[in-house]
Each structure stands twice: as C-alpha cells, then as structure tokens.
Design a protein around this nucleic acid. Structure first.
Lengths: 223, 223
DNA sequence: GGTGAATGTCACGGGCATTGACATGGGTCC
DNA sequence: GGACCCATGTCAATGCCCGTGACATTCACC
C-alpha cells in the first residue's frame, strides 16, 4: 500500500504532537482517538500499539505539560518565594496554552520524570525557606495542589465549548446585575466591580495571598 | 399500562434525587441518562422532558450541592474569617460526599438561587472585614474560586475509578520512595513524611494560609 | 365527554473506546 | 539468499453513550 509507505512511522512522540495539535484546534471533547488518528492519517486503532488506552495517553500528555512548564525555567535563585511564583506562573501559562489537556491534569499523578523534577524543585524552595522537613513536605503538597487545582480550573473554563463558556461568563456580567432588588444586598453593592471569571489577575492574587502567608510562616519558623 | 400508572410521575426533583443515588453508588462516569432512567424505572429519554440536555441536569445537580452546603449553616457571626472558613469547610465536605457530581462543579456557574445565596454571604464577609468594595469583590472571587477549585480537585480524586485512584495514591507512597539515588535530593529528604494526596489536612492547611493572608491585608486596610 | 398540552416510549443515528482477527513489512538468523 | 518472527497497522465488530423525531398516553380543564 503506497499510502502506508509514504507515511512516516508512528511513535509515541508523533502521537503526542498530533494530540496537542488536535487539542489546540478542537472544541470541547475533541481529543479523541479518531481525531488524533485522522490528524496523523492513520487508523484510530493504530494508536493502541503505542498507548495501552486513553488514560495512558492522557498521562503522557500531562507529563508533556510539566516538561513545557519546566523548559527554560531559570535556575533556582536565592529568593525561594520568587522561585515558587515563577514555577506557578509558568504552570498556569502552560495550562492556558493547552486547556483541553490541562483541564484533566489537576487530579492525575503522572508519575513521570518531568513531574519528579518539578516536585523536587518546589520541595527545594520550601526547605530553603527554612521549614522543617515535615512542614516543607506539607507546604509543598498544599502549594502544588493549589496551583494545579486553580490552573486546571482556569483551563477547564477555557476549554468549555464557546457557547457554554459565553453563557457562564456573561452570567456574571448580566444575570448578577438584575437580581431581585434587595434580596442580595452584598452582590448589589459590588456587582459593578466584580472581576471576570477569566481575569488573569485572579490567579495572580491567589498566588500572592498564598506566598504572603508562607513568607510570614517562614519568618516565624526561623530563629 | 399498569406499570406506568403505578409509578409516580417524574419531576425534576425526583430525577435529581435519583441522580444523586446513582452517583453515590456508581463508579466513575456512572452518571448517565441510562442509569438514572433505570433507577427511576423510566425510559432514559424520558428525562429529556425535564432537562434539555445533560448540561442542564448537571447545573441543577451542582446547584443542589450549593444548597446542601448552605443548609443548616450558622448565621453570619462577628468573626468574618471564621464565617469564611465555615463556608469553605462545608463546601469541601459536601463535595466529598458527592464526588461524582462535584468534580464538574468547579468550572460551571450554576446561575441559580443557591449559588446567589452563597456568593452574597462570601461578599458580605469580605465587606465586614473592612475591604473596599473593589477589594471585597476581588477577594470574594479569589477565595471562592480557590475553594471550588481545591474542593473539586479533591472530589475528582475521590471520583476516580478505584483502580486508577489506587495507582495514583500508591505512586506517592511507593514510586516516590524508590527514585534513582541522588537525582532528586529534596524528594529523598522528605519522602518519608509526604502527606497523602487525599489527606484532609491538606485542604485545611490551604484554607488557613489564605485566611492568614486575608486577615493580614484586612488589618492593613483599616485605620 | 372532548380537546390540547404535557409527559412517556420507541427506534434510530452518530460518536466514542476498546478488542481480536488478520495483513504486511523490516529485521534477524541460519 | 531465504525462512521466520515480531512490531506495527488495518479492519470489522461490540457495547456504551447522547440526543432527536415520530408516536402513544395521560391529565387538566372546559
């Protein structure tokens, strides 16, 4: 079959690349074996020769996100909090760049090398902050899960199909302003200045809050 | 048809109850029209008479979660931070009680009465803290989204099908302890004391950090 | 008792993940 | 060079799912 010969051979890397291409182009739920197969000019089931099932492919894609976030990250500095902020912002940015994949990455432990690298760096920051190992471990877990959860949520919002997304976003701009008079006094008071759901400043503010608190605790932890 | 007459009539409430029953019983992805229909002894497509599509049903279920979280909540006290903590813990608890539904609730704006009630209360706390309306609106959004994101992530973990979940949880207890010697020094140092992914203390710690930071900012905001 | 709207049922179309049987082609060993 | 094997790709089929449109039944109201 000439067609087959012309095509380059499939490989996990090619498949992952194709998956990202599909995910960027595609609306909600576009990340199917059919679509990835079509992108490669291959039969959908051919992918099963390289990934046992959908879950394994997703874990590989998630690890690729971690890799992209780490890629080109500056070396650890002497400001542990700034380093944490840098890692967090990179993660958030990468997640928004690949929302279709990122929306699922909050919960899953990829168990792959790039995840290990990231975990190691964050724990390193916490130890440099002067926390005991027990506290460093706890704060690593809380900080990372916070970043993952918040970033995955932003990604999920970005990954909604446009119609639904529009509805949710305008709900905050419209529905909330025409509520029954007086029933929700606090909403009334601030409805004009509510930040949009997808305002990037939200993540930034949350990050600052967490880092403020960690800095305060780190000071208390030191002599 | 005797069967039909014997059955009570369907209604949105009955369907929602059945959906929660199914979701509690069921493994991952169990929340299908087929399953809910079977639970009610009705044809799956009968549900379409009461909910336009799956999305509308999900929004109703999500709003039911908000209602359950509000249900029996104590009246606002004079300690705004404690009130926020109370709301957050209630949300987290309810989400873990209904993980199959809650895992999707992070992103979606339900746009229904119980959501409005919750929003109003949180904004009220922020205003009592002494923030300007602009700050109150911003901190409301950040605080609520943080709680939703973190709680939804915990729920998503709880909602994973048991096999996958087991794999992810033990990864942290096993895989992370047998990494190549010396490559990840910080992981090595704390691997013995890493909190489990599903340790409820994680959420508590994250909540304390955010509230610490908000209290500090509220003090600065006042005369 | 008659009528129209609301509700339930049915058959079906179109997607999807995954499996198992089969084909093919490149590399290996004699 | 030839026989053989294994990795890879293809195909057909299974089983689940959401959602639609045509049809039947019930109920409230007149």
């Amino acid at each position: 079959m000439a067609e087959r010969r012309a095509r380059t051979r499939l490989s996990p890397e090619l498949i992952i690349d194709a998956a990202f291409r599909v995910s960027e182009r595609g609306g909600a739920q576009s990340l199917t074996f059919q679509a990835i197969g079509a992108e490669l000019g291959a039969h959908p089931t051919a992918l099963y020769r390289h990934f046992r099932d959908r879950d394994e492919l997703m874990l590989a894609l998630i690890d690729a996100l971690h890799a992209e976030a780490l890629d080109g990250a500056p070396e650890p500095s002497d400001d542990w909090a700034a380093d944490l902020a840098e890692m967090a912002r990179r993660t958030h940015r990468v997640f928004l760049r690949h929302p279709q994949v990122a929306q699922f990455s909050g919960v899953r432990t990829a168990r792959r090398t790039n995840e290990f690298r990231k975990v190691d760096r964050v724990i390193g920051c916490m130890r440099r902050a002067g926390f005991t190992d027990v506290d460093a471990a706890r704060y690593y877990r809380v900080f990372s899960d916070f970043v993952l959860a918040y970033a995955a949520q932003d990604a999920a919002l970005a990954a909604l199909d446009p119609r639904t997304r529009e509805g949710d976003l305008t709900a905050w701009q419209v529905d909330y302003r025409i509520l029954p008079e007086g029933r929700y006094p606090h909403i009334d008071a601030v409805s004009g200045v509510l930040p949009a759901l997808d305002d990037p400043a939200n993540f930034e503010t949350a990050l600052e809050l967490i880092l403020d608190a960690l800095r305060a605790r780190a000071e208390r932890a030191r002599p």
